[in-house]
Design a binder for these strands. Sequence first.
DNA 1: GCGACCCCATTGTGATCACAAAATTCGCGA
DNA 2: TCGCGAATTTTGTGATCACAATGGGGTCGC
Lengths: 243, 243
Amino acid sequence: MPAKRAADAQPAGMTAHESVYRTLRERILIGGFAPGMAVTLRGLADTLGVSVMPVRDAVRRLIAERALMMQDNRRVLVPEMTRSKFNQVVFARQSMEPELAARALPSMTASDIKALQAIDQSIDRAMSKGDVEGYMRGNFQFHFAIYKLARNDMLLGLVESVWLQFGPFMRVAYGRYDTSKLEDFHQAALKAMRSGDEAGLRAAIAADIGQGMSFIGDEVLAHAEAGGKGARTHAYVPARAAS
Amino acid sequence: MPAKRAADAQPAGMTAHESVYRTLRERILIGGFAPGMAVTLRGLADTLGVSVMPVRDAVRRLIAERALMMQDNRRVLVPEMTRSKFNQVVFARQSMEPELAARALPSMTASDIKALQAIDQSIDRAMSKGDVEGYMRGNFQFHFAIYKLARNDMLLGLVESVWLQFGPFMRVAYGRYDTSKLEDFHQAALKAMRSGDEAGLRAAIAADIGQGMSFIGDEVLAHAEAGGKGARTHAYVPARAAS
DNA sequence: GCGACCCCATTGTGATCACAAAATTCGCGA
DNA sequence: TCGCGAATTTTGTGATCACAATGGGGTCGC
């Protein structure tokens, strides 16, 4: 049996394609790929220790979800962020996520809230250690643990698609600036959940999105646009480029 | 050269996969597949006159877009509609489509509106002829011709994904009942566009969605649920099953 | 007559190969 | 030293084959 590196530990019954997909998806959400970075099927296949077929399937799936894009040359790369696209992301998030949270509220149990608190604490720990990856993973878990409770698969899928599209970009922002400056709206959200305050929960989620996104947008987009839009180099290097 | 049946006429530079994808997607949006109907890679490949690889790519893409689904058996089939999923579709449409229309309004030119009118007339023609397929195609074109003008690719993509998910279901409804009973909210929408009335346009789109969906939901879901939820047979036969 | 069981056709998955197009590299010439 | 072009490498696409699992159909036993 050939030695596989990542994408291992298939929970029995998972196809290679599924395993590769989850690995890549996780990496995108955590910001493991830099915007503008090119990915190749054979390159990923070598890295993950599988043949090109499962990688091909996974990459096509991610392209369908807009997490990756294919340009006319048929070259696959991580999409760049533009001001326009950024505004679309913000609007989409603000439209759907507070709504999902509000719909999750009625079915929320005490243990659900406890679990969310634990996630939020892990976010704090990651932040104090300067662990950007841990922060992003926690942030993702916090939001989607809430949204899942709404039991609205369609809206949930749409929101996931949006997150996949700004994941790489978020990493650039959080990698460049100190996350500890951010006000913690998660606490406000938790408080609203405990008291069953729907309006408060909506507001907290909206504020969390608004802060995070405006933070990202102002800093990074201004930077990118000032630095010239053509084929700029990326100071940021992915966490595990070829490890 | 082997004789191809459908998916022909590749506009030069289109891959076989892309061609197959568009063919299948069109067919789904028009309701060419019945909910619950199983599709096989080799079957589609034979029908379309291509090998299984492009079909495999296209089907996986449609699965990623939730237009098709793969059950645990790894069998691919057209998703069924449930009451819960249906409510989610309605809510998602009501959330996004009036907004998209409103955003399209400012950049709408007289010729845009003329084109929309032409589409609406083709819908009337199809309706009077009892041409369900033409009606659905026209309805899709009418809505998305508007939404495209908003220049919001993200929201547009999300809406497309939602349409793909209720396409087969809509066909069941429209195939079973007479569409001529429907009030024409497209005219109201066109009137609002001409006068630049954003609120009116939002209302017209919302009403169009509300009418169409409640029509579908009340009739078909009630029917489906009354008829027993287990492995029922489908009276409806796809337009070109094996032609 | 009916049910359980076995066999085989069919399914999606994945590997490997061939191919054309694109990008990169190398070398030649000015 | 620099620019341009040809050769080579690398890319995604698609075809074909092998394989394991699933499902259906037919047959045998009761």
